[in-house]
Simulated scan of single mutants.
Amino acid sequence: MAMQLPSQRSGGRRAPMADINVTPLVDVMLVLLIIFMVTAPLLTAGVPVNLPDSRAKPLDQDKQPTEISLDADGRIFIAKDEVSADDLPARLEAIAAQSGEGDPPQVYLRADTALGYGQVMRVMGELNRAGLNRVALVTIGDE
């Protein structure tokens, strides 16, 4: 019994190769995985806050909201800028004045779970006094 080599096929014609070389695909996928693993932590908010869990659904938004954060030490941040408790009312009034006569801007309030209820409510009271009534409390989704 003789073994037939690919070069000895009938008529000298070569049959199409049915094997797929997946090595380049695996290489590209591994590079993309590494890129996503490195960049994903950089996309989170700048102020580290330990958020509580919730079963609430995410909100739909049409404009970029103003984000106010309270860390575990009780420090207040607007976006990534630290604001003292004395300067907070003036900063909130400036944010409310920027919106003009239209709807007040959406405000996301992120508060650490270590904070007391009173500290969060003081900031909520200042938001209400400034006329910023569209406030959403940010939590970690628990699905």
Rank of each mutant, 00 (worst) to 15 (best):
M1V: 09
V107K: 00
A56Y: 02
G125K: 12
S7E: 15
E101S: 12
S7R: 15
I20Q: 11
Y108P: 00
L132P: 00
P6W: 09
P6E: 14
F77L: 08
Q106V: 12
K63S: 13
T39L: 15
L115T: 01
L30T: 06
L109D: 02
K63T: 09
L25Q: 08
A97P: 00
G11R: 14
K80L: 06
E82N: 08
E126N: 09
P48L: 10
D62N: 13
P48Q: 05
R110D: 00
G100V: 02
D142W: 02
R91P: 00
A111W: 02
L137R: 10
M17A: 13
L115P: 00
L88P: 00
L5F: 11
Y117L: 09
A18S: 15
P6D: 14
A97W: 00
V38R: 10
D87G: 03
P52C: 12
F36W: 13
R75D: 15
T23G: 05
T39W: 15
N133K: 10
V38D: 04
E143V: 04
P58F: 08
I95M: 01
V31G: 07
D86M: 06
T66C: 04
S99E: 10
Q64M: 13
P58L: 13
R91W: 00
M17G: 13
A2W: 01
D53L: 11
A79R: 05
L43K: 08
Q106T: 09
V138K: 00
V26E: 05
R91G: 00
R122H: 05
G116L: 05
R14A: 15
Q61A: 10
M3N: 07
P58R: 10
R110E: 01
A96F: 01
Q8F: 07
L115K: 00
A94K: 14
I35Y: 03
L59F: 05
Q119P: 03
S69M: 02
T113I: 12
P41V: 11
G11W: 09
E101T: 04
L70Y: 01
L5V: 06
D53P: 01
L92T: 01
A72K: 13
R14G: 14
D142E: 12
I95L: 04
V49Q: 03
R110M: 07
Q4W: 03
I78P: 01
L127R: 03
A15H: 13
V22S: 06
D62A: 14
M121Q: 14
R13Y: 14
E67H: 06
D60G: 11
A136E: 10
A97D: 11
N128G: 13
D86I: 07
T44H: 14
Q119T: 14
M124E: 09
T23R: 08
E93K: 15
V49L: 01
R129S: 13
I35K: 04
M17N: 15
S84N: 07
L42C: 09
A111S: 13
L109Q: 02
E101P: 04
P104R: 05
